Every structure is written in C-alpha cells, then in structure tokens.
Amino acid sequence: MPDLSRLAAPILGLAAFLVAECSADAADAPAGTSAPDKSGYTLFNPTPDALMRAFEPERPAKASNPFTVDAGHFQIETDLFNYTHTNSLDAGNQFYETADPTLKLGVTNWMDVEVNFNAYQNSLTHSNLTGALLANGHGFGDTIFKVKVNAFGNDGGAVALGFIPYIKVPSAAPGLGNGVVEGGLIAPLQINLPQDFSLVLQTEFDALKDANDSRRHANFVNLASLTHPLSFISKDLSVTVEFYSAVGTDSATPAVYTFDAGLAYLITPNLQLDVGANFGLTKASPDVNVYTGVSARF
C-alpha cells in the first residue's frame, strides 16, 4: 500500500502555499468589494435572484466543491449516460447507468442538503478465460444523503472551504450493492489562481465494508482538480483535468488511481451540459469510464 503521509504532505504543502499567496493578493485588493450580507435568507425566505452566487455545479470529474446552493433554491446534477469498463486477470466487467440525479436544496446561505438517487444500472461480469457470465445485476442503485456546510468563501474571495458528511443507504437491486450502510466526510478546498485557473484540493475519509467479511475499514481519497475556461473557443466552455486516488486499509480492496478529464458548457446562467472520461492508472483501477450529463438550477 502506498505511504499516505508521503501523498498528503505535498498536497497540504501546496495548499498552504497557495492559500498564503491568495490571501496576500486579497489583502492588496481595493476596498469596497465585500460581498452583500445574505445571512438572513433561508429555505422559507429565498435568496433574491439578483444576489445568487455564480452557478457552480460539481460536474464534471469527481471533485466536489465547497459552494452551497443559495437558500431557497433547488439544483439538479445528473449523468444522462455513464459507462465503465473494468478488466482484471480473471474477469471483465461492463457497467451501464442511465441516470444518477443529485438533488440539492439550499437551506441557509451556508448549508444545503442533498440526495443522490442511482437510477437504472446494469452490471455484467464475464470470465476472461471462458467468456461465461459470472455475475449480472440490474435495477436501481444505492441512495446517498449529504449535508454540505461552507466554512468560508461561499460568496467571494480567493479561497473557499467546505465540509460534506454523507451516508449511503443500501437500496440497490441484488448484484449491484453490498447491502450495508456506509458513510464518510468529504472536505474540498477551492483556490482561485491567476489567469482564471481554479484548483480544488480534496481529501475524504470513508468507513466502508471489507471486501470479504462484514467488518469495516478506513478508505482515504485524495484528489487535485484544475479547471480553466477555453476562452479562445467560448467563454462558456471550460476544461477540467484531475488526478484521483483512493487507498484503503482492507488488504482485499485494491487502491484506485485515475486521471480524469471533462468539458463543461454553460448554455445559460443556470444550465450546463458536460462530457468526460476517467482513465485507470493501475491494473486494479477501472480501465475507462465515459459519461455525459446535465446540471440545472431553479
């Protein structure tokens, strides 16, 4: 297993350097640029449209972001189609999903609640030696509940931090899920860099079921995600590239490392289309995952 401390140290060091640099830039910024006071807006007293923050879907790629949905507003983000191919020495798996909507509702100016429904899925596993079907599952997947809390940077500034506790409820059809409750905590840090670059450094802790028994193990996710608009094509088109790692303490659950890339196009200020692909960097990682999706805010 890779040494997690060696992975975390450069990420944390980079984050500290960038936060310091961005804080210095903010200190030199002209006065009078403070964000309006939106603390009084709630689910039952919605934020006026004129005061809503810029539309910030978490799609594409895997990174979350620290920004909550404005109080009293609703957001949906979903795959339209998602395909993953995974190949090991003994078996190959093909996984299809037609939709996995995440519904988000702004409760206060600093918190939203979210639920992710994994809609129709189909998983097929074949033997690489004989071609025989080893496993087949189809139907609806698990359901994930989240609460996102923004610590700072929701309405401006060079740096923003969020915390996202989540719990997965087993609702999957046979052959698709492991049938147990799992959960964890996600912490995305977003840093706005010069030249319109945006960097997300994210760490995550999960409590997951072991592969071969009913015990639980710790899983650690770290990723770095960089986004930039492709202004030479369109100011509304942006590209994201990302490095992702998931390393657990269960010896029967191999680590996953991927390189991810995605394009997002903002059709209107509240509607975005995206397409992306994730590529496995190790034999234990999925070979390729391709998807397309849509995000909308109301």
Rank of each mutant, 00 (worst) to 15 (best):
L18Y: 04
Y244E: 05
A158P: 05
G153K: 02
A9M: 13
L161C: 03
A135N: 15
A27I: 06
D196C: 01
A63H: 04
T292F: 15
Q75W: 05
A132C: 01
P66N: 07
A63K: 05
A187Q: 08
T68K: 08
V115A: 06
S214D: 15
V69G: 03
L103A: 14
Q190I: 12
F55C: 01
F117N: 03
D28C: 00
N278D: 13
M1L: 11
V275E: 01
Y291D: 06
G262K: 14
G32M: 02
L12V: 05
Q75E: 14
Y83D: 00
T143D: 07
P269E: 02
Q190F: 03
V247T: 12
A264Q: 12
F163K: 00
N270H: 07
A172Q: 04
A27N: 11
T84L: 11
T203P: 03
F44A: 14
T282Q: 15
A35S: 09
P194G: 09
A29C: 08
A27K: 15
Y291I: 05
G276L: 12
R53E: 06
D213C: 05
E114T: 01
T253Q: 14
Q190H: 12
L271Q: 04
A135D: 15
I164M: 04
R215D: 14
R6S: 01
K38H: 01
D155G: 00
V181W: 07
E97V: 10
F44L: 15
E242G: 06
F220L: 13
D79A: 10
G262Q: 12
T47W: 07
A211D: 06
T86G: 10
A172M: 05
N219R: 11
A71Y: 04
F220R: 09
G72N: 09
I233D: 10
L199S: 10
D70F: 01
A63D: 08
L185N: 09
A246K: 10
G293A: 05
F145M: 06
G40F: 03
P57E: 12
I186R: 09
D3C: 07
G137V: 12
D37W: 10
A211L: 01
S245P: 01
R53A: 13
V181F: 08
I76E: 05
F145Y: 11
S123H: 11
G72L: 06
G156K: 01
P101W: 02
L230C: 07
G162V: 06
L51Q: 11
P286T: 08
M111C: 09
F95M: 00
S251K: 04
D155N: 06
G32K: 03
A296D: 03
D196S: 13
G40I: 03
G157W: 06
N154M: 15
L4P: 00
L89I: 01
F163C: 11
G13L: 09
G183P: 05
N87P: 00
S225Y: 10
N270G: 08
Q195M: 09
N154H: 08
L133C: 00
S127M: 07
V256M: 12
N222C: 02
V247I: 13
F17A: 06
F81H: 12
K62E: 10
L4C: 00
A296K: 09
H126F: 13
T84D: 03
S127Y: 07
R215H: 15
L18W: 04
T282W: 14
G92T: 11
